[in-house]
Design a protein around this nucleic acid. Structure first.
Lengths: 707, 707
DNA sequence: CTGTTGGCGCACGGCCGACAA
DNA sequence: TTGTCGGCCGTGCGCCAACAG
């Protein structure tokens, strides 16, 4: 049907977009997870301005205390229960009272929808083993699980047991959805993007890593790094990571056999699957014959430029005060640094990549205040600040975890606030939220509404009734602005509010949507979904007493640090010895992440993701660690930064640039402390960008650009 | 999100399209039915040509021997079986052997996917009743049916029992499909249509009457009739038909309160929901405040023109030989008749409707041979001709009932045949099919392939291997041509081949897709789906012995004719007495069809669908009848022409024109005989249009226009 | 005529350790 | 360590007629 699809001559093969929000969804019927993203293409004007690859977001917090088991025939049979792998049970489940004979307890686990499932957990048999009996068959039948499907038990930071599923059956014909033909869908995506690009407006996409045929949303930094900072050539060896059935990672090796546009006529100069490859192994028949630059990791390259600040800036702000400069005078630094990233400091960059692309307008450096002012919904920041588990670096792209959109819309009430006016509100709100959290029985909307009214009142504004708020939703959401954090806030409070204002750029890549591929299931996508969903539930349910404010975890540490393990408040931990083969193996692998085959594969955007292991990587500040979870296959608990297959993490690009002034001037630095362990070191949580003009008009219509 | 949707200035609110094919689908998971349509907008050039509202298609064959029951709590309980309404069991199920004590048998029923379900049918209890016991609970749980859902048992013409379901739960969130955002879907539809219109190419839509928010595909004749031949004014009373929960029809009355564009800015001069109405009843709150002209039936109007051939031409060819004129000299008649329909014979037509529209180019009469030459896939015609239950008039829009598209593609092998060359093939194939039908175990593709090869061989051509056939799929499908039937074929054979070449025009209407509405379930949609699916299955399985060649039925008779009942080869019939209240009631109602509320409602496009019952309607030739099936609610077996909510039937427009020469010259007339009953009268099965030029080049590239 | 209920029998769901991979 | 099996027991599925609306 290719000929049936119109060409959009003004739509380039890739589109640089502002990612405004990401909403997580789980299909009520199948528990299938997917993400909804709102993107706004940058205008040509913006693209002419100094280019800012504001990859300041970070990964979704991935639970570390979980296990995944593929169900056996016995597990799914009506004849019996679920056999729990011993180590998994000991790690993830609450400890049994072994004084009982036999030891047993009732487990309560919540699925993505908040439904609770009760299981009898018993330790019996000869030899002894952990079993789930009563309640298991109900779950199996309700979820319609069969042998080969997987279940996922997560012990989260609120001492809740979560329960996810991953279906093995991938031959389900997701399409057609019986609503729109596939070519109309394709056209719809293209037309929506083209329209949004031409009008500089937003559009919405769904991203379902298990249903979407291709990775069409790529973090800009990843793209730029791959396209501009990675030298490849025919004959070069590379490796590519895939997630296997068991949620482990498999590395495939191959050789680049050609570099050419996949569709020169329709999408000239697209890098999407522009690399023809040959795979080493005999199983490579399943592998794509074409991959994209950002999917692979060349093996023969070395750091392509001798950075004046090699690697030691991976952790740019090991200490420091929160610094959210809203003043001017920094954009030159930014611009110059980004220019450097482009080609200024290293004139050889352009020649690194294969020809035909040149430097398109899309890649022009830019630094535009209006872009920076486009913030995620204010409420998102609020709620995230108040409730979300605070990781060292929180991805702004994960802020919108509310499922009902209209609730998020209410937050837009805050949009007309001026930056400095808003900030105190959040301090107040944060306190208030924690206090409120003790109140049981709040439903979400009530709760949010109260918070909003409180916020309004604090600011001396009259709170419109909710209906009115709702009606202004659309308009006001456009005006949502971000706040600036005074430098001398208390650390403990600071970390909860302003960490979520930076929205990274995303890159939308178009190409034909080949429907022949389906990515393998990703357990860690489910994990990621849970980290979203639980944040929501936490607000609803109760566990918001100050003692329950989530502790900081090490989701983003590039390597597991044994020194910092046992920090979490989970009752029982089983630290992995330093000699654990997987720990060392992981170091050897540099970055091991689950990658969906073909379409979702991406490699970890770690600071040391350069091909060669440079000794400087060991100079990273030690980070609070946790035991490395080893699943049944011995796979390590990869600190992957995938969100539903989309790698929306990566502080890599700017960090690699290694411009201290940039980082200090534009990053927000927050010192975070783990609630239970004072050994947690302060660490930067967010890179916060200043507006290019602090005299920007602050009227309501333009306030959105005021950050 | 309206502002996010681009305007397509060149896309009018309505688009006249050629309907190329309709493929029926049923969701494997839910049995949800939907249709896939390929539409091709007419080019401006074509629209300038004499306009042909070639509404020559007819309704899907609706089974008459079926019953539908809404499941009770007892029916769905695990405690017991299914209580079969007595009359339904006696009508639809095979008769029990009452010598047994108790009488019992095993029933086998197939669902839309061909899965077989076995039930023990027993007649027991005091008082005696029909029950389905063993096997029922398996079905209930497998289909996840709950009380309130409905089941549908159909006894088809091949003495097979079919089984469908209709879920009551309509609050399922069909969207988002987790693949594409709703606005992208909307944009996709618009962009696909706009592109197709600008390039005169095809595009594909899905039509799901239970999920789609609006009736956006309207038969052109229906549209033309409503917009140009129906006079409405504010204050006028009207009625509108809706399908109720129980698949019966409910008529709502109302008053027109206003006439205006629903969206003057975006879709000026659109008739879609341009009529503001007030509903009479208190339940009218659920009814749309706006309806479209073609949905309603004005009550105060009388035949707006005194036709010189009033109504007696509804059945234009009561007798006659098959006549598929491929010769010229008829287009003048066609044109003039259509001109007459437009405004020639009745200059007052234009003033009948509300202003602002005028006579747009869309409504220009046209008669274009290339349009007429656009045929459905040849294979469709083949298979339909060979296997489909032959109704008196078969809708060409229903031809493509193969589910796998690639199988249909194979048929394109025949595309380069010249019409007269092809015809003998079909003779052969028909015979061969019948013989083959005795062979069990054919899978579909094998079977089709054999047929095709046989066909090729017959024509003296080498049969390419299937792979090769497949690779030519796309191209050859475009070239599929129709055949022309010599006049003096045997009746028995004739009826199987050429009845499916006429493709009616369709009208695609755009407007905002309001997602707030959901149409109620339509049992008859399921029935319609079955009539498709079973045709497919018939080929696979066996029942194609000559005695099983489907008998002709009276799907299109406007009124049940008792004189012709008992013609079918079904073992047991229970003729409804002439005094049956529903028979008379149906006459009184003129045309009672199930209409989905709001979006799918349409009224029966019967020949006598003019508001007033003119006595001439009784002059119709008597038709073979069948008993009028009365379901539990006493609703008559409406001879509806809905296909998945889309009324793709209507011979009305041309028939209303009442130009004998047109009909005789362009309609294909086939004399059909029921295999078992010689009393079946010959009747026209298809209106077959001749090309405007019989010297049209017959080379391969242009053969598609040769019909 | 048919929806619901009580009765009742047995099949299978479901818990157990044995056993072996 | 854990997948599968045989043993076993008790619940509830499922078949029946009674009864009533």
């Amino acid at each position: 049907m290719e000929s049936q699809i119109p060409n959009y001559p003004n739509l380039p093969a890739q589109l640089i977009c502002q990612l405004h929000n990401v909403t997580m969804h789980a299909d009520a019927e199948t528990d299938e997870v997917y993400a909804q993203m709102t993107l706004q293409p940058l205008s040509p004007q913006e693209l002419k301005d100094p280019f800012l690859p504001a990859e300041l977001g970070n990964a979704s917090k991935q639970p570390t205390n979980y296990f995944c088991k593929t169900l056996t025939a016995s597990d799914t049979s009506t004849h019996g229960g679920f056999s729990v792998p011993r180590r998994a049970a000991e790690k993830v489940f609450p400890p049994l009272d072994f004084t009982q004979q036999p030891p047993a307890q009732e487990l309560m686990a919540k699925d993505l929808h908040g439904n609770e499932w009760k299981f009898r957990h018993i330790f019996r048999g000869q030899p002894k083993r952990h079993l789930l009996t009563t309640g298991w068959s109900v779950f199996i039948s309700a979820k319609r699980l069969v042998a080969g499907d997987s279940v996922l038990f997560i012990w989260n930071d609120n001492n809740q047991l979560l329960l996810g599923i991953r279906r093995a059956n991938r031959s389900q014909t997701v399409m057609p959805s019986s609503v729109l033909s596939s070519d109309s869908m394709h056209i719809g995506l293209l037309a929506a993007a083209a329209h949004a690009a031409s009008t500089n407006s937003r559009f919405t996409i769904f991203y379902n890593p298990r249903a979407s045929p291709s990775e069409f949303v790529i973090p800009l930094a990843k793209y730029v790094k791959a396209v501009y900072h990675t030298r490849i050539s025919v004959g070069m060896r590379f490796r590519m990571l895939f997630e296997t059935e068991e949620s482990s990672v498999r590395r495939y090796m191959g050789t680049i056999t050609g570099i050419s546009d996949l569709d020169p006529a329709r999408w000239p100069n697209s890098h999407w699957r522009s690399v023809k490859v040959g795979w080493d192994e005999s199983t490579a028949g399943e592998r794509q014959p074409r991959v994209s630059l950002w999917e692979i990791e060349p093996l023969t390259t070395y750091p392509m430029y001798s950075s004046p600040f090699p690697m030691r800036l991976k952790r740019p702000w090991p200490t420091g005060l929160p610094s959210l400069y809203g003043t001017s005078g920094k954009e030159d630094d930014l611009t110059s640094s980004l220019m450097w990233l482009r080609d200024g400091a290293n004139p050889g960059f352009q020649s690194f990549n294969f020809g035909g692309l040149g430097m398109s307008p899309w890649m022009q450096p830019r630094m535009d205040s209006s872009l920076l002012g486009l913030q995620p919904d204010m409420y998102q920041a609020m709620s995230a600040a108040a409730f979300q588990n605070t990781t060292k670096q929180v991805s702004p792209t994960l802020l919108q975890f509310q499922q009902p959109q209209n609730i998020a819309g209410r937050s837009a009430l805050l949009s007309s606030q001026i930056l400095q006016q808003v900030q105190p509100q959040f301090q107040e709100m944060h306190h208030q939220n924690i206090n409120d959290s003790a109140i049981q029985g709040h439903n979400q909307s009530e709760y949010l509404q109260q918070q909003l009214q409180r916020c309004q009142s604090f600011n001396g504004q009259k709170s419109p009734p909710p209906q009115q708020q709702e009606s202004h939703h659309q308009h006001q959401q456009q005006q949502s602005q971000c706040m600036q954090t005074p430098q001398h806030q208390q650390m403990q409070e600071q970390k909860h509010s302003p960490d979520f204002q930076c929205v990274p750029n995303g890159l939308l890549v178009f190409s034909q949507l080949s429907s022949t591929n389906q990515s393998p299931p990703s357990t860690l996508q489910t994990v990621s979904a849970f980290s979203q969903q639980q944040n929501l539930q936490d607000r609803n349910i109760s566990s918001l007493a100050p003692s329950n404010v989530p502790s900081m975890h090490d989701t983003l540490r590039p390597f597991p640090s044994e020194a910092g393990s046992n920090l979490q408040g989970v009752p029982r931990t089983t630290p992995v010895p330093v000699s654990d083969p997987w720990s060392s193996k992981r170091v050897a692998m540099e970055s091991v992440i689950p990658s969906s085959s073909h379409v979702n594969s991406s490699h970890m955007q770690q600071l040391d993701s350069e091909p060669s292991n440079i000794p400087q990587s060991s100079s990273l500040a030690p980070l609070p660690g946790r035991e490395c979870l080893v699943d049944q296959d011995g796979n390590s608990d990869n600190q992957n930064h995938l969100l539903f297959g989309v790698n929306i993490d990566s502080q890599s690009l700017l960090m690699q640039g290694g411009i201290p002034s940039l980082q200090e001037d534009n990053g927000c630095i927050a010192s975070l402390q783990d609630d239970n362990d004072s050994s947690t070191i302060p660490y930067s949580t967010c890179n916060f960008l200043s507006p290019s003009q602090n005299d920007f008009p602050l009227n309501e219509a333009l306030a959105s650009s005021g950050c």
